[in-house]
Design a protein around this nucleic acid. Structure first.
Lengths: 229, 229
DNA sequence: TACTGCTTTTGTCTTTCTGACAAAAAAATC
DNA sequence: GATTTTTTTGTCAGAAAGACAAAAGCAGTA
């Protein structure tokens, strides 16, 4: 082991995870009441320290798994936040990620076990430290991403209906969308596969299930085309 | 000083800076040949360790100042890179920023002093470690940003001509733009002030100088409008 | 002083994309 | 079989983007 940097400072490095899911008509975020000091009992995002021999994304996966029971989630880095006074007492550089999960896969046992709850992203109250800022920055980023890349699908089950997909995008954009225009754009991209099965939970007529076709999307990307809903 | 986190690991945290300037018809990036081990003599971005009592952005400002002599530059975080094996020997989490500077303000003495040189972003050779990846990610981000926010102006002097501005955007987009359409969009946004002075360096006729008007741009933003060139 | 050469400056038209808009079809329930 | 609810589908108008060429200003030179 080399010793080039011996005279430099070392800092705590943590990750904070914004775990997002789609439920009903709203995007929800998982928050917890902290079970340990400092700030025990306060509302907080899920975090964890990056260990010496652990890649940052592995820390995120570990935290997401601990709180949801889900593996291999879609995640994206929001940024690193490291102002000297941002944590209490000790200097901690926090690297923020958001993860998009299919809430059908969420392990509900963990909800009580972890003092966790899902809250509508428009009604998150006050969180500890600079976690509200993390969330605000995340939502801006996530909205930009879902508008330009097909990552929104990670919030839905593998099979979903068009009304479901539209509700999702209405929740993301926070405005109603026109059904015909929405479908027009969607079909023009040709990235969905229509299945022969209908969902009859939510309506008499039933809506056909669709599936996202990653292969077609990747080809679209190669041709220099873009995703836009 | 509290001691909550005593059992956790601490890591080295550094910043790496991608300093970009506009010269001739191309965006240039400042690179150096390292003066110290490890990897002495290899081509590299400029970096520095984050000190215990220093905000991350202050580290960036320090590094940028050391290599350019310029203060108060426009900067944006690209992201944190912290894979276990990314640096040599020791675990170092690097937080990458890019900075946009007006090359007229660059202190040329520092060029030799630091073993530095400006190279066209399309002809950067191989850099140490994962610095090529840093650069690639940065350029993608920078292009997105300059296309949607008026940050490109940071690469020009305070007074600039329209042909200059167009050359800048052609360098960013890497394709020729139509003069009339470019100006149409620009004037529609109404964020430039025409000055009474001409630049006669580059042409007999001379081109009028313009100045960016931040006040008008901010008002544009408030109205929910967007920048787009 | 008029002519040449180079660069800046300016407007119209066509095409494309976006956004508004309403009626019919399918299936369950009564 | 009538009613109710939700899904499914196409056209038209306005806005935005992109293609395109001629004239004007200035310096230098004949």
């Amino acid at each position: 082991m080399t010793k080039f940097y011996l005279q430099e400072d070392k800092l705590y490095v943590s990750v904070d995870c914004i775990i997002l899911g789609f439920k009903g008509n709203a995007i929800n975020v998982l928050i917890i009441k902290r079970k340990f000091e400092p700030l025990k009992g306060e509302r907080s995002l899920m975090g964890g320290f990056v260990r010496r021999n652990e890649n940052i994304e592995d820390t995120v996966s570990r935290v997401v798994y601990d709180y949801t029971g889900i593996q291999n989630v879609y995640m994206e880095q929001v940024g690193a936040y490291g102002d000297v006074g941002r944590d209490i007492g000790e200097r901690v550089v926090s690297i923020v990620y958001y993860a998009l999960i299919d809430m059908e896969l969420f392990d509900e046992k963990l909800e009580k076990e972890n003092n966790a709850e899902w809250v509508d992203i428009n009604n998150v109250g006050q969180l500890i430290l600079d976690h509200n800022r993390f969330l605000d920055d995340t939502l801006k980023l996530m909205k930009r991403r879902t508008a330009t890349r097909p990552v929104g699908f990670n919030l839905l089950p593998e099979k979903f209906t068009l009304p479901q997909l539209q509700l999702l995008y209405e929740a993301i954009y926070q405005r109603p969308l026109d059904k015909r225009n929405f479908r027009k754009k969607l079909f023009d991209m040709d990235i969905l596969e229509k299945l022969d099965e209908k969902d009859k939970q939510l309506s008499r007529k039933g809506a056909y299930y669709y599936r996202f076709n990653k292969g077609k999307y990747d080809r679209l990307l190669e041709d220099g085309d873009y995703f836009s809903l």
